[in-house]
């Protein structure tokens, strides 16, 4: 069996392969539907007269629109697998990840997971007006690290980001950073914690070439520590390098689910047309 998957080569280890063979499920997604409700999307919401006429005529407000982002997706992920999610923009990849992480409620269907899946990303918790130093602490706490853990890893987070390579920038507010520097610090904070089920949403494309190499390395490490990894990316090469299985989504529906080579080939063929 093992030989059959060597076609996807990449950075997978033999250990991970053996784990996959054991078929221990870590994520079970069963007929999942996710619906966003968007307020203020309808026409004429801004005009008071149209709002009034709606109230008078008792028509239902058109201002709440539903976006059906994921439609009936089912799959089972196993321990040791590293799964790429591909599809065009707006195909529901990120939404699917958030639903698996339990961050977006499911409209229908269910998601079962082993432990607490985590999204690699901490941007929303950071504040631009605070110093890099305080953001490291705040981000760590937001991800659920204890104060001791943060104290222990603080130096390695700062070193990894390379923020201090050109002077003492960590004690300056984050709004003074260049966009590359800020992205590097964000990635370093986010990648400081290891997870059972890890989900990465296009996090690889930050920083300069040297930092990108370093972050790819770190992601491979995280994969070793994690049971299962999900990776959303538009870069087919990074998917080929890191994933042994690919799920292809289009308009919220699952188009194909299988070994990396086959799915990517079909996906590229479809996109050439």
């Amino acid at each position: 069996m093992a030989e059959a998957t060597t076609g996807t080569a990449g950075a997978r280890t033999a250990d991970a392969d053996r784990l996959v063979e054991q078929h221990i499920p870590t994520v079970v997604v069963d007929g999942l539907h996710v619906v966003y409700r968007v307020h203020g999307a309808g026409s004429g919401k801004g005009s008071a007269t149209s709002a009034l006429s709606r109230i008078v005529s008792k028509r239902r407000a058109p201002s709440i629109r539903e976006v059906h982002a994921v439609r009936g997706v089912s799959f089972i992920a196993y321990k040791g697998e590293s799964i790429g999610l591909i599809g065009s923009n707006g195909s529901g990849k990120s939404t699917l990840l958030k639903a698996v992480a339990g961050l977006l409620p499911a409209e229908r269907g269910s998601v079962f997971t082993h432990g607490q899946p985590s999204l690699l990303g901490v941007n929303a918790a950071l504040m631009n007006d605070l110093t890099g130093e305080r953001n490291v602490i705040l981000g760590g706490l937001a991800m659920g690290m204890s104060q001791d853990e943060i104290r222990e890893r603080y130096q390695s987070i700062v070193d990894f980001s390379g923020i201090n390579e050109k002077g003492d920038f960590i004690s300056l507010p984050m709004r003074t950073y260049s966009s590359g520097m800020a992205a590097r610090l964000r990635f370093s904070i986010a990648a400081a914690k290891s997870h059972d089920v890890l989900m990465i949403d296009e996090a690889l494309a930050t920083g300069d070439a040297r930092f990108q190499r370093r972050s790819e390395e770190r992601i491979r490490e995280l994969r070793k520590e994690a049971g299962t990894v999900f990776l959303v990316s538009h870069n087919n090469k990074s998917i080929r390098d890191t994933c042994n299985r690919v799920i292809w989504l289009e308009k919220g529906e699952l188009i194909m689910d299988g070994p990396t080579d086959e799915v990517i080939k079909a996906y590229e063929k479809e996109n050439k047309r």
Partner: peptide, 22 residues
């Protein structure tokens, strides 16, 4: 797949102690 063929998703989740996400 494997030894769990034929189990429904919910049964499979229960067998391996998976919990409902979120």
């Amino acid at each position: 797949g494997g030894p769990d063929q034929g189990l429904s998703p919910a049964q499979l989740a229960a067998k391996y102690g998976l919990s409902v996400s979120g």
